[in-house]
Nucleic acid binder design. Structure first.
Lengths: 140, 140
DNA sequence: TCTCGATTTAGAATAATTCTAAAATCCGTT
DNA sequence: AACGGATTTTAGAATTATTCTAAATCGAGA
């Protein structure tokens, strides 16, 4: 038995990086494994760096920034701006929205269909709507 | 004739600051005049500082930060997070949304009723929805 | 294995913001 | 109008997040 399961699998970290046209370096592979291991995640450069460190992955903070930006440009991640002075990267690149817990600074996905937007203004002349971000801010 | 117009007036800068319970210092008055002079505005601390400087208002950048935060706490302004590493303050504190022009970094108000949200998820237990921010990102 | 462009890295540099503590200001009371 | 205490302002240092730099290392094809 080559594999314990024959269900359709998530692509491996290597697959994802290859498909994105990036060189699969040791650092990118390690980060991709952390990021895409299970389910949707929201990381900051700092949080991912600490996580990698704690798992004995040896890399520099600059590399985490590089990788997060490279992944974002290739569509593997999506960047979210919630608070000035802190960037979040989301492994869920499908269209969706967010809860933002102000007390903890954590994010949680909100599925696209639980927020129904039934009208939107026209884009101003010469511009196109690139994305509509909905952030539901939560507090006590 | 005491005044060229007898229509209902916008509150003066002094009124606003007094009503907010803040001391009307020279700096706060000058900034409030710039901010609330006409219509809705979106400023960054830097942009407001430069504007004040160019009008010969003598103050320090730290004071602009202090005033913007004080005004925000008192409900005179609203803070908006659009891009990591840059904060925007909006003189329109009524509920509304925004266009964000990625090319120029400028914001434009979108009235509440041109974005119709007909369903929202329940807030997670123990949390309340404090605000729903919709940002319509525009590009070429 | 060799080679060369891509990637990583440490540390410096930059940018935005906050902090510090001293000086100035505001304003109610004299 | 001067007084005095709390508030505010300020310059500059400190902090935080991020980007840059240029040298070292790595990855993949010949």
């Amino acid at each position: 038995m080559p594999s314990p399961s024959s269900q359709a699998k998530e692509p491996t970290a290597l697959d994802r990086i290859r498909k994105a046209g990036l060189r699969p370096t040791r650092q990118r592979l390690a980060l991709a494994k952390l990021l895409f291991a299970n389910g949707s995640r929201h990381v900051t450069p700092e949080s991912l760096f600490n996580e990698a460190r704690s798992k004995r992955v040896n890399l520099s903070l600059a590399t985490v920034y590089n990788a997060l930006h490279d992944f974002t440009e290739c569509g593997l991640l999506r960047e979210i701006s919630i608070e000035a002075g802190r960037s979040y990267f989301d492994t869920n690149t499908t269209e969706h929205h967010h809860f933002y817990f102000e007390r903890t600074g954590k994010l949680q996905d909100v599925s696209l269909d639980s927020v129904r937007i039934t009208s939107l203004p026209d884009a101003p002349p010469g511009e196109k709507v690139k994305r509509v971000d909905v952030v539901i801010r939560l507090a006590k």
